[in-house]
Amino acid sequence: MINETIPPEPLLKVTDLHKHFGVQRGPMGGHKSAVRALDGVSFELAAGETLGLVGESGCGKSTLVRTLLRLGSPTAGSARLEGQDIYSASGPTLKHLRRRMQVVFQDPYQAFNPRFTVAQSISEAWQIHPEVLPPSQRPDRVTELLTQVGLRPEHANRFPHEFSGGQRQRIGIARALALEPALIVCDEPVSALDVSVQAQVVNLLTKLQRERGLAFLFVAHDLAVVRHISRRVAVMYLGKIVEIGPVAEIFSAAAHPYTQALLSAVPVANPVGRENRSRIVLRGDPPSPVSPPSGCRFRTRCWMAQEICSVEEPELKHRTGNGLLTACHFAAAQANHVKAHKKDLDA
């Protein structure tokens, strides 16, 4: 039902995931309401695939990451990794699941224990999951992992503060690889890095994926990086996926007005023609997730909004005759508009 092009047994299958945080209002704590950080998120991720996840701050990206890693439990919904339900698992099953999904954090400065050497940081996981590797092979494996991520074997005995941001991110990737995961969740892995170093880490991730068949859930706000690394892209707005599909179609034929606005907002790294570039500038900020607008959540900032948008919430489904799933009543009209515009440009 989600996307026919994906093989029947996806690596990760997320179904109608909800995560609400309670907010107390009023001096006596009465009148409880909830921040609906995730409000029905469904998607699939195939083995060896990269799904880019984009959206503005507050859209629920980080909550999704935390909930998937089971750093918090969902309010409703389910997620299955390799056929195992993440939230009902316990004991050895849960331990195995945790091993199969690893994470690379945004801030390489806070992700390491400053008193651990690199070797200790990487090996720590094997103490918890000793079945992965017998102790005698661990030092050699550390060397091997460091080489794979482009560091030198002698780096194993150094401490995190001796490394630059890019090098630390490489150590973070080596640590994530230590447990031979099937899925690595990358939460803004390159946004803290300088441009010249960012490209090194992006290339490293691509190489590792090719060699090991890893799947990535790649969360980022930089759309150019997402376009570069992803096979499919999901766009989130206020706790929901508003559009999802193959990367080429998201970037050339987006049918959701929010995706279009997001793409048109990115500054283009080429000054030629900037005077004539038209840009969709959205008014205002995203509304509060405590009381999202009725119907379509994007309608308060949308230039296409009609009456139906405030009454009926648009479903995420195929609307434009290509691989995209779009949650907009006027997706087809938008797609035609984009097509016509492209023709004008070609002519």
């Binding site: 010249s196 170093v197 960012q198 691509t206 150019a224 570069h228 790294a269």
Partner: peptide, 19 residues
């Protein structure tokens, strides 16, 4: 080294080392 929004992702050419 800059990934581009206006072109498909060919391999990025990073600058080796760090600042």
């Amino acid at each position: 080294a800059q990934p581009r929004l206006d072109s498909e992702g060919s391999e990025l050419v990073p600058i080796p080392g760090s600042p």
